[in-house]
């Protein structure tokens, strides 16, 4: 690849550092997050995209085991050789348990190909799809928060992957509001519908879509973006955390968390069978589980083990 050949020494060092990150032991249940801010085209957009990308990366670091698990490419670093180097080298390592990629910026569509706009030659849909095809993480999230991003919805779809695009198709070419509200979702606890102090991809997406729709309604504008989500793992991938889970993430007893998780699974299982169970019996069973969960949660909140 021409871009790879053009890399300087500094870039080689950057990629080497990246390989160390991606080579972390799988047993650590690692999450790797890559956030790339593209070409703004003017000072306002450039500032906006960098701000959004930074906010996403900050939230990702709150979840990450190590700050090194989060890679932010923005500003002067967002050049073709850097980004391509990054994308092409992602699969070289052992894969993380969870892999997340956020592309923030402008996208375009020439009638045949989607392009993520960066200084110099843009990055094409084929390049993105080819690079990400090598990722083997069991849970993947790809967010393309750009105009025309709907073009990538289908090509990027995979069984172990959630794909979010800011538009429903490549013909929605106007600059999108989606990333602004997505960033808001990561820091607004009202996005956390199940109130577990953790915002899932699905919660982030639902909040963002509502906010985007509300923006167009309030401004009495015809909506020029319609975000889409594909994939079945959206409830299982975390994108932000707050409250006790964040403040005491290193001290909460794994046993308590496991208990909490077991009860949550049991509740979800009961909810899934709601239509098959007698109503009174359902709520009696739910009450028992909820009281157990309440006790566990109170122990966690109070720092017990």
């Amino acid at each position: 690849m021409g871009a790879t050949h053009a890399m300087g020494e500094a870039m080689k060092s950057f990629i080497s550092a990246l390989l160390l990150v991606l080579a972390a032991p799988a047993a650590m249940a690692s999450t790797v997050t890559v956030v790339i801010s593209g070409l703004g085209g003017n000072a306002d957009y450039t500032e906006q995209f960098e701000r959004y990308a930074t906010a996403i990366a900050d939230e990702a670091r709150n979840i990450a085991q190590s700050p090194q698990d989060v890679i932010l490419v923005r500003g002067d670093a967002a050049k073709r050789n850097v980004i391509m180097g990054l994308l092409e080298n992602l699969p070289v390592s052992n894969n993380a348990d969870v892999f997340k990629l956020f592309l923030i910026g402008h996208g375009s569509f020439d009638g045949e190909h989607y392009k993520f706009n960066i200084p110099g030659p843009d990055i094409t849909d084929d390049e993105i799809v080819t690079a990400l095809a090598k990722i083997e993480s069991p849970k993947q999230l790809i967010v393309v928060a750009t105009s025309a991003s709907g073009a990538l919805l289908e090509p990027l779809a995979a069984e172990n992957r959630v794909v979010i695009t800011a538009t429903k198709n490549p013909r929605e070419k106007n600059a999108v509001r989606f990333p602004m509200y997505m960033v808001e979702a990561l820091s607004d606890t009202s996005a956390d519908l199940n109130k577990d102090e953790s915002i899932s991809v699905q919660e982030m997406f639902d909040y963002t879509v509502r906010a985007v729709n509300s923006y167009y309604d309030t401004e009495k504008l015809l909506a020029s973006e319609h975000a889409r989500i594909e994939g079945s793992l959206a409830d299982q991938i975390e994108v932000a955390r707050y409250g006790t889970l964040l403040q005491r993430k290193d001290t909460i007893s794994p046993a308590m968390l496991a208990k909490r998780q077991a009860l949550t699974s049991e509740i979800n299982s009961l909810r899934a069978r709601k239509e098959e169970v007698d109503e009174d019996e359902y709520f009696d069973r739910l009450q028992t589980l909820m009281l157990e969960l309440t006790n566990v949660q109170r122990s966690i909140d109070e720092g017990g083990s």
Partner: peptide
């Protein structure tokens, strides 16, 4: 309420 949000402290 808890069916919707199992970790809703006030509902708990």
């Amino acid at each position: 309420a808890l069916e919707q949000a199992p970790f809703f402290r006030e509902a708990q």
